[in-house]
């Protein structure tokens, strides 16, 4: 079989998948496999780097090169791997704790550098592997093993942070919305630059139902908005709500109450809009934004510039190793 006509199944490794039955990570793995198929690289030119966590077991289940590394450092490791071989399609799979707590520094700087990585942060708002401690994305008052009386740390908004760093691709998915997560992984895989994909997942054991507000069959859709480039931002179980401008920001309104022309249209190239969308939260009266929130293909990735610079210095200085060694004050004995 030619490696170019791969299907999702071809990306499954023979290893038994050891996540708990019902874990949100299964759905995300499925979406990532779609992304890899779309990227069109043979399996031996794909590398997955992960940190430590339940989600970071991911590489073992994939029929690609895989590196299960250390807690929080996957972004830095993957940056080196990508620069070392830019022909590889490099994915990072990381948990919310792995990315935003111990790995916050590397996460920030990999985004800032715009290294050409496909970065999937699986956000279950809990430390799964270590059996249920709160994370920087846990909600206020959340009960966990280390917050038996409720979390009193304010949660962070990783995608808003990403926007602040000048991210070039920012998207959010949800385990239960399989098609959308697939779409995101496919676009992310094709994006030239750092693709920041946050995908919400349920942890059936330690944070079960953490995303119920978003996934509830009856009311969930009133709390999320799926944004699509060029389309009006309308949401709700019966598409009864929309986003309209409100001074410097946006507010939710009933479609019936506003003029059609006032309904905002999503523009994935608008960074200010992206910043607002990534900060929206249901408890702030706005739906959680899902979909491709921001995408900018014009900013050069770091790894491209590394080699452009090397070529430029070669053209300009073009020294050989012998010449370099013989530079400076030399004398012959």
């Amino acid at each position: 079989m030619a490696d170019t006509q791969l299907t999702k199944k071809d990306f499954a490794s023979p290893n038994e998948v050891k996540w708990c039955p019902g874990c949100g990570d299964f759905a995300i793995m499925n979406a990532v496999r779609s992304g890899m198929v779309a990227a069109g690289k043979p399996r031996d030119e794909v590398a997955i780097v992960s940190g430590i966590g339940c989600s970071s077991r991911f590489p073992y289940y994939m029929e690609t090169y895989g590196f299960h590394t250390i807690h929080g450092r996957a972004a830095a490791i993957a940056s080196g791997l990508k620069v070392a071989n830019t022909d590889l399609d490099v994915w990072v799979i990381s948990g919310d704790g792995d990315s935003t707590a111990i790995g916050g520094n590397h996460f920030i700087h990999a985004i800032r550098r715009n290294v050409n990585l496909n970065y999937v942060m699986i956000n279950n708002k809990i430390y799964g592997l270590t059996k249920g401690q709160y994370s920087p994305t846990s909600e206020m008052n959340q009960i966990s093993k280390t917050s038996p009386y409720g979390v009193i740390d304010y949660p962070m908004a990783p995608l808003k942070v990403a926007m602040g760093l000048g991210a070039t691709f920012v998207a959010r998915g949800l385990d239960k919305k399989m098609k959308l997560s697939e779409e995101i992984c496919i676009r992310g895989a094709k994006h030239h630059g750092f693709s920041m994909m946050e995908i919400y997942a349920n942890c059936v054991i330690y944070n079960d139902g953490c995303h119920n507000q978003l996934t509830d069959k009856e009311t969930g859709d009133n709390n999320v908005i799926i944004v699509r480039d060029g389309e009006k931002m309308i949401f709700g179980t019966d598409n009864q709500f929309c986003l309209v401008q409100d001074g410097f920001t946006v507010k939710a309104a009933k479609v019936a109450d506003v003029a059609e022309a006032d309904i905002l249209v999503h523009d994935e190239k608008n960074a200010d809009m992206g910043t607002i969308l990534t900060g929206m939260r249901p408890d702030g009266g706005l739906p959680l934004a899902l979909g491709i929130i921001y995408a900018d293909d014009t900013k050069k990735p770091y790894d491209d510039m590394v080699f452009e610079q090397i070529d430029a210095v070669k053209a300009k200085r073009g020294r050989t190793m012998d010449q370099i060694m013989q530079e400076g004050h030399t004398w012959t004995v």
């Binding site: 590394t69 830095a76 490791i77 940056s79 080196g80 070392a84 071989n85 590889l88 520094n105 590397h106």
Partner: peptide
Amino acid sequence: MEDEIAGICCAVGAACAG
């Protein structure tokens, strides 16, 4: 890199890639 940890980590990544 952003710190020494990232310094060695990206080096390990580069080593893994040959």
